[in-house]
Nucleic acid binder design. Sequence first.
DNA 1: TCCCGACTAGAACGAACGCTCTATCTAGTG
DNA 2: CACTAGATAGAGCGTTCGTTCTAGTCGGGA
Lengths: 195, 195
Amino acid sequence: MQTSTRERIVVATARLLQRQGYVGTGIKQIAKESQATLGSIYHFFPGGKEAVAVAAIRHGDQEFAALLKESLDSEPDPAEAVLSCTRELAAGLKESGWVDGCPVTAAALETLGVESDLQQACADALNGWERLVRDKLLGCGFAADDARELATTVISAIEGAEVTAQVNRSEEPLLAVGRQLARLIRSYGIDPPRR
Amino acid sequence: MQTSTRERIVVATARLLQRQGYVGTGIKQIAKESQATLGSIYHFFPGGKEAVAVAAIRHGDQEFAALLKESLDSEPDPAEAVLSCTRELAAGLKESGWVDGCPVTAAALETLGVESDLQQACADALNGWERLVRDKLLGCGFAADDARELATTVISAIEGAEVTAQVNRSEEPLLAVGRQLARLIRSYGIDPPRR
DNA sequence: TCCCGACTAGAACGAACGCTCTATCTAGTG
DNA sequence: CACTAGATAGAGCGTTCGTTCTAGTCGGGA
């Protein structure tokens, strides 16, 4: 067996969570989709459904962080980097038939009322992504306050643009937001570092 | 009876939807919360749960559109108008204990896979809000293309900022995004119309 | 007075939910 | 070979889901 049963469960759950949320995803559906059985799931995750979801959210977190980091590292100019990131997200979203959106938003919104590990995992993911953007901006010479506000704006706007793109089944919202974010970053008039 | 049973059902459902999404909200919970009975709900909404949800989404749509329109009309300068809007949203979010977020996002994300009236209602809401912003910008002398892209960005960013604010239980993301959006709008260098 | 449509009320149904339980299989160790 | 911990397998538990159904209440026109 190439991939462990545990890993198959986590990956399948991550995909299901981003498509139909936490409440909409059943343990038995996870079992079927991951080619595992109920016994296996409860063996690896004695915490039940929520424990599986937490692991899946963390998986989606790392996956998106890797994509984001790759985009940010590929371009020295932060404005270009954000553009490249939105382009990549738009392409991926279209390819999935507009269903594979942000891996944490759906789950996060459903578990807001209750204090849970799941909610914490979602918050950690969002804040981690924001930190990646902030560090990039700091490395390009932005002031600390500007970098922080811009990072929050970039992540929030991308988050919202992904939802808008999904609902309208169109790449345009993501691309338009990418262009405007690039303009906003450039408006600070900081020269991009040359390689 | 001051408010009709039908209205109570719609209002209660709208609040439940924005807090816990579509799948997470049960018909019986709607009945309890709205002081109605199952019979009443199915009497007014023969289409069942989805029909109730569609009416509730449309209600939330109009409610938010009214708030948005009020913010936009209160300030002649579009940048100031967006700032005022994010401030108002931040205050409302905090007051609700970070649970009453965007009325359609949660429901929209859960019903992406299937072609449904509910999904259409969510798309209509988002596009309607975007149009409000676009018309404001057009009225201020923005070029058609700029107004369209900016409107998409404003709505998407606010949408995402609201999620970020909820997850972090903080007003700051909404306020920061508001400031950056104002800066972006001003970067076009178009003089705000004087009253 | 009767009646009828609008509305209220909640018992009951089959399906699906998360989870527990026992049983079986498998790989590694003595 | 026997033994055991790890992993797999799924029947079945109690509960809740959305929906259907029958029964009852009530005000106003014939």
